[in-house]
Design a protein around this nucleic acid. Structure first.
Lengths: 154, 154
DNA sequence: TATTGTTATACTCTATAACTATA
DNA sequence: TATAGTTATAGAGTATAACAATA
């Protein structure tokens, strides 16, 4: 339970993800989109659109940044803003037909590009890995919530 | 082996790491350093210094960016540049005593801050996780190398 | 000629906070 | 009052390519 047992997993998590991201980004770049732009495109693909708030929650991009990212997608004709019918304060972001088309052309191939790397793990290992990652994520989220809400226990 | 079996692990890897990074960065920010600056500080800690080239390889920060990051660390008195004795083209970056001191004050506590989240996994699970992540990283690196060296097979 | 690090450019992302318009 | 999104500002990272010094 000491740190000595924890550091190796921590290191591997970071190194593994860095390798994943390098691979993923090198492929995404061929679309001419940045990673955040791709993130938004993929989040909006096959949906009826989403408010800025929802987009922010799903992608971890803060609202100030999101305005700029959506601006750039809009400038490329890939997304557009629509007033929300439900809440006059809200704006819904939706892919244009061009955006949906790009999504289709790009998302499945991207998964297909990444998939073989995951297939080097046997099915059982993949299932275990998924489960452990989920557990770990839960712990991170719990710790973050506790960290951001300091000393409620006082 | 279809994509349907791969997507869940892929998703969990991304979501888990995002949660990790949020937690980690929220803690790092208290040092007044950015994530890349912290990355360099930690890489240089307890070493005799490193060239820009080595730093770039270890941290994935490209050389143009690295100049700026090191500039900022130098401006804070945390690092300094020294001419390499071995190669006149090289510059060695080394932590100053203030940099080493900050490293000591910050690195162990940061690990201690993150460790409890990993300790929610039983020892066996942690070992498995580490092994699978290592396998996966190997696959990513192999695929990346193949991707960046296109069509040698032609 | 190739490599190391710097410089320059232009863009993108980030954090923060003030602002508007709605609720 | 609180919330959704925008705007403004200042800083930081990114990609790219041209460049100087050295190998």
């Amino acid at each position: 339970m000491s740190k000595c047992l924890v550091i190796p997993v921590l290191r591997e998590l970071v190194r593994c993800y860095q390798a994943f991201e390098r691979l993923s980004v090198s492929h995404i770049r061929e679309t001419g989109l940045t990673a955040p732009q791709f993130d938004i495109l993929v989040t909006l693909g096959n949906t009826d659109g989403m408010t800025f708030k929802e987009l922010g929650q799903r992608t971890l991009i803060t609202k100030g940044t999101l305005t700029g990212v959506v601006d750039r997608l809009e400038a490329r004709g890939l997304a557009r803003r629509e007033a929300s019918a439900k809440d006059g304060r809200s704006t819904v972001v939706r892919l244009t037909p061009e955006g949906e088309s790009l999504f289709s052309r790009v998302f499945e191939p991207h998964l297909a590009f990444l998939a073989p790397a995951f297939e080097t793990l046997p099915d059982a290992a993949r299932t275990d890995l998924e489960r452990h990652l989920r557990t770990l994520r839960g712990s991170f989220e719990t710790r973050l919530a506790a960290f951001e809400t300091p000393a409620e226990a006082a």
